[in-house]
Design a binder for these strands. Structure first.
Lengths: 339, 339
DNA sequence: GTGAAAGCGCTAACAT
DNA sequence: ATGTTAGCGCTTTCAC
């Protein structure tokens, strides 16, 4: 292994000079700088990460805590993780992957041991036991999603309230008067994950504001559950012509179910999904949807973290505005009673 | 920050004694050990990771290199990553996440700087430019998938040749005489990713061995492409009654296409998929499938790596045997010409 | 503009 | 069974 001392010797300078050439924290004469750079190249020198971290009190590593439960929003999570890594690299940082099942202790472990300089925590629940830990940690963190009490934290999330409302507005604009939200499995609501709750809030409020019927039901992932849920829904509320779906894995089967029940999309039933764009585009017909801008959120999270590491200020809560893309699964409602 | 010196002072011993209590590399009297452990607890001591790494020449971090292109086998990759992290933690290691777009340089960077002790590289192609780099790196690595020239490397993969053959055997056993393999998009074959090629090999060889027709076609992900591909296939080979699908995202739409073409599954067309179990189980009918044991492969990869780190020997190539689960999408072929 | 030297917090010989 | 000490390779004062 080639060390900084080897480079210094090769270039005929002191080790500290090599260090300063590399960090740029001191003005160096063009002559020495080039000589050092040549030596660095010639010897193939790579600074030792641990030595650097030990001396500088900075590991240049960020922790990314991802939920372990699979099946939730897997493709979105991947996009997100990819964005975090890519952006971290832009700022010369690496990413340590933690699964949420290590719990609060895991955060403490990597933080207290100075393995990482800062943390990105995904899938934050309304009453998340990691939140108090994060507050006490001697390093910055950014949460994706936000807890009930977000005081003193930095949180970034899609504005799910607005997302729910957008779906209602889109359908109401098209003349639909009776809408239903087909949500995540009830376990997700019970876990009090913020996003499901907040979408529901936006949906209900917007329905009220627009004066349309807005009913809501959770939905499990099995085909039978979907079939039963939809049948029940349509028998309880036969007037429903607009469906909002926030439950990525059921989207495919749901289209089957509607077909099987004799409801054409969009002629008999308009459908808006809250899901990744590529999922929406893969369906037949392509779905009108509010997409999850995972990449944008990931970028934002890392940028905020870097800002905080450099002593800068960032907003406590950043809500990324949702955008709705109209595709083939929604169309104007034809009111048969007045037509 | 509380250091090992603080703990030593608190317990009235030398710093090295604290170190040895923590590592267990020396026999310590019960008395001192307990005293030290109490001090560790009392002060909330956490060894500094960089200092430890610098002194011991071991970071206790593994690199996990995941493909950046999304949409391929995202859920499988997630399972895999999760398994790697979980198993790494069992061996007291952490996982640094790298995206494949850093290329060979990325591997060199984290290895040469001693950021990591070893690497797991996913999605290895037949002629992978990272392979020569890995060979020269001063640390162990494990590849998921395997390149053309696997000499001196440690590779783990599902036995895709056997997977392709299993599908043929299953269908041939049910009396089907004309089979087709609906493969990945042609770009995947062109990239020379091993798994697609090898499945094809197993499929073709088994078809020959069993004396049945075995044709093959790549398939893109759009609905129109699927429709067109299947129509073409059935018009070229009207006798086909058995389909093997290795292309996870098209599975849902494919069932639609068959329905639209008036082929019932399994009565008119038996279908075997090579995909994750949960995907197979979510379809209607549930699909007979060869699953990708991502968790098992991830475990295996980390275990091999740890063995190598400890100086142990591991096989150059580990092929995980595939298992076929028969579900509702395959049934015996009724030969109308002889019946 | 550059060098010398003192740590950063830990591990692992080398002592006893 | 435990203590002493010399690094690990780098950053960053302090000194000139």
């Amino acid at each position: 292994m080639v060390t900084i001392a080897d480079v210094a010797r090769h270039a005929g300078v002191a080790a500290s000079t090599v260090s300063y050439v590399l960090s740029g924290k001191r003005t160096i004469s063009t002559d020495t700088r080039e000589r050092v750079q040549r030596s660095v190249h010639a010897l193939g020198y790579r600074p030792n990460a641990s030595a650097r971290a030990l001396a500088s009190q900075r590991s240049n590593v960020l922790a990314l805590v991802i939920p372990l439960r699979t099946g939730m929003h897997v493709p979105v999570m991947m996009q997100f993780a990819t964005a975090v890594v890519t952006t971290a690299r832009r700022f010369d940082h690496d990413v340590l992957l933690l699964t949420a099942d290590e719990g609060p202790d895991g955060l403490e472990r990597v933080a207290q041991s100075s393995l990482v300089d800062a943390l990105v925590v995904m899938d934050v629940e309304l009453h998340d036991e990691r939140v108090p830990v994060l507050r006490e940690l001697p390093m910055p963190s950014v949460l994706i999603g936000y807890p009930d009490d977000a005081d003193g934290l930095t949180c970034i999330d899609l504005d799910f309230v607005a997302a729910g409302a957008h779906c209602v507005d889109h359908l109401a604009d098209l003349g639909h008067r009776s809408l239903a939200l087909l949500g995540t499995p009830s376990a997700v609501y019970e876990r009090q994950t913020g996003f499901a709750q907040r979408t529901l809030t936006g949906f209900v409020e917007a329905a009220e504001r627009r004066g349309v019927l807005g009913v809501e039901t959770p939905c499990e992932h099995t085909f039978d559950a979907i079939l039963h849920t939809v049948e029940q829904l349509l028998s309880d509320h036969p007037d429903i012509t607009g469906l909002v779906v926030q439950n990525e894995p059921i989207i495919g089967p749901l289209l089957d179910v509607l077909r099987r029940l004799g409801r054409r999309v969009p002629e008999d039933m308009s459908l808006v999904a809250i899901c990744a764009d590529d999922v929406a585009e893969r369906q037949v017909p392509q779905l009108s949807s509010v997409s999850i801008p995972a990449e944008r959120i990931g970028d934002q999270a890392v940028e905020s973290l870097i800002t905080k590491l450099e002593g800068g200020d960032v907003p406590g809560l950043t809500l990324v505005p949702p955008t709705l893309t109209a595709r083939g699964s929604t169309c104007p409602h034809v009111d048969l009673t007045t037509a």
